[in-house]
Nucleic acid binder design. Structure first.
Length: 284
DNA sequence: AGTAGGACCTGGTGGC
DNA sequence: TGCCACCAGGTCCTAC
């Protein structure tokens, strides 16, 4: 689920609720969800810690705790972090349950069980492999057209593959990559290095635009995603290609197609996103 | 170097 | 209606 806008929405919804709570205990129902340290050590180390702040990096949610420890959570495909009352129903898909003071609890619910968490101090940061060498944040000042151009330069593989590479840009996933490429009028399978400077500019603007709009609508709820209160997002109503196979392109009415690019289901408009890449771009 | 393919899990959906 | 492939928003590992 969670790409950057979804994880950021979870962060914003949880911060005012979690901040100040002390973790009084933890129940681990699916030990593999706890990647570091070992589950027993994890449980012992997290008990008594107070939540100080919540940060996001790429698709990671980082819960900063007292005592210089941080809980790094990755929701992967179906993970949900839910702030609940103690005694509320616990879903059978709950992998880890944190008990909080004040009669509250934080449930990590994850149907597909791909979600993972690490409890690390500053020196152990490298234990979280997916945080190592993470690329730039797409809404940061570092992410410029020149950065995007350098990132795509010389690439013979599909441009979409580069957009999904977290070492280059942190936080883009399958939905927002497809949406950005459609808005920029670029076929996802085009070789990364084949984009003209004008196309790179358009793609840069489109990436920032879809991420910002996704955030403004509190994320995309296609299936599982909800924020820390269990509320769905609304950006799915504004998707222009993702999961719209056969339905008319909102720009030119050509039926949207599905294909596979970089191993991922990929949606595009064959009219607005020409495979040959003439550079003509989307026609208004 | 970079990319493709399988693995990790389980449930929902589209097509027959 | 019912069944069953196929598909799923992410990342990691291995093999080319």
């Amino acid at each position: 689920m969670p790409e950057l806008p979804e994880v950021e929405t979870v962060r914003r919804s949880l911060l005012p609720k979690l901040a100040g709570h002390t973790i009084t205990g933890v129940e681990i129902f699916w030990p593999r969800a706890v990647r570091y340290p070992e589950p027993e050590a994890f449980a012992a180390a997290i008990r008594g810690r107070r939540v100080e702040d919540l940060e996001r990096r790429g698709k990671h949610l980082i819960i900063h705790l007292s005592g210089e420890q941080s809980l790094v959570v990755h929701l992967r495909m179906t993970g949900r972090l839910l702030y609940r009352d103690e005694g509320d129903e616990v879903s059978p898909y709950t992998t880890v349950l944190f008990h909080l003071d004040g009669g509250k609890a934080l449930h990590f619910v994850d149907v597909r069980k791909f979600g993972a968490m690490h409890l690390v101090c500053a020196e152990e940061w490298d234990q979280v492999q997916s945080l190592r060498g993470l690329g730039v944040e797409p809404l940061s000042e570092e992410f410029t057209p020149a950065y995007l151009a350098a990132m795509l330069e010389g690439g013979r593989g599909p441009v979409k593959g580069r957009l999904l590479n977290q070492q280059r840009i942190a936080g883009l996933g399958n939905i927002y990559a497809d949406e950005a490429l459609h808005r920029a009028g670029i076929f996802p399978g085009r070789p990364a290095g084949s984009l003209s400077p004008v196309e790179v500019e358009r793609l840069h603007a489109a990436i920032r635009e879809v991420i910002a709009e996704g955030l403004a609508h509190r994320g995309t709820s296609v299936r599982d995603y909800v924020d820390g209160d269990g509320r769905a997002g609304a950006f799915q109503e504004r998707l222009r290609v993702y999961r719209r196979t056969g339905r008319p392109c909102l720009r030119c009415a050509t039926p949207i197609r599905r294909t596979v690019v970089a191993g991922r289901g990929t949606f595009y408009c064959p009219q607005c996103q020409e495979e040959t890449g003439t550079g003509a771009g989307p026609q208004e």
